[in-house]
């Protein structure tokens, strides 16, 4: 497959997908070098930079998303507001898990100064934003929680490394 065809193919597959696709997934499906797929994606991202639809790096992959510049019109057209809403308490819990994973329920509760976070955890599990990733090797073998790939997608993060450093906010780590 020549580069021009590869670029078009990658564009078409990405266009037809409603979830982010990774370079690895596409490379193994198309049976071409990862570097070539990455190159095609980067070229596409550049092509789409100033369009109504952008190719965005998200959850370790790439996805076509409408441009935030025209957000208002798209949202109004579909009569659609924010998709997910979170209470401050659940956002806090999610932040703790995101920044300190893997972490147990008890550790989360202690950090938040509350007795129990089980209801919130259940809710986040239900929403597929967190997952149980093994047990901690202490008495009682409590479950350890981690964020999911879906979490990255929902928050528009490419990877956990994308979470800003607290120093940027003027808070000492």
């Amino acid at each position: 497959m020549n580069k021009e065809t590869l670029k078009k193919t990658v564009e078409a597959i990405l266009f037809s997908s409603d979830t982010p696709l990774t370079v690895k997934e596409l490379a193994s499906f198309l049976d071409v070098e990862k570097s070539l797929v990455k190159e095609a994606m980067d070229l596409l991202a550049e092509d789409y930079k100033d369009r109504g639809v952008n190719l965005v790096a998200i959850a370790g992959g790439y996805q076509f998303l409408t441009s935030p510049n025209v957000y208002r019109f798209v949202a109004d057209f579909h009569k659609r507001e924010s998709k997910h809403s979170f209470s401050r308490a659940s956002l806090e819990t999610l932040a703790i898990i995101a920044y300190r994973q893997p972490i147990t329920a008890q550790e989360i509760a202690a950090l938040r100064g509350v007795q129990s976070v089980s209801q919130i955890l259940r809710n986040l599990l239900e929403k597929n934003l967190i997952k149980i990733a093994g047990k901690k090797d202490v008495v009682g073998k409590p479950s350890l929680y981690k964020t999911t790939r879906f979490f990255l997608e929902t928050f528009g993060l490419n990877s956990l490394d994308d979470l800003p450093d607290l120093k940027e906010l003027g808070v000492e780590e």
Partner: peptide, 28 residues
């Protein structure tokens, strides 16, 4: 410690807000 968490939660809220301004195919 808790102050850090609130800062982290704020980051997440901002990220979520930015992400929600972009729509994927079939987002409805």
């Amino acid at each position: 410690e808790y102050e850090k968490i609130t800062a982290q939660a704020k980051i997440l809220a901002e990220k979520l807000n930015a992400r929600q301004k972009m729509f994927e195919r079939g987002f409805k």
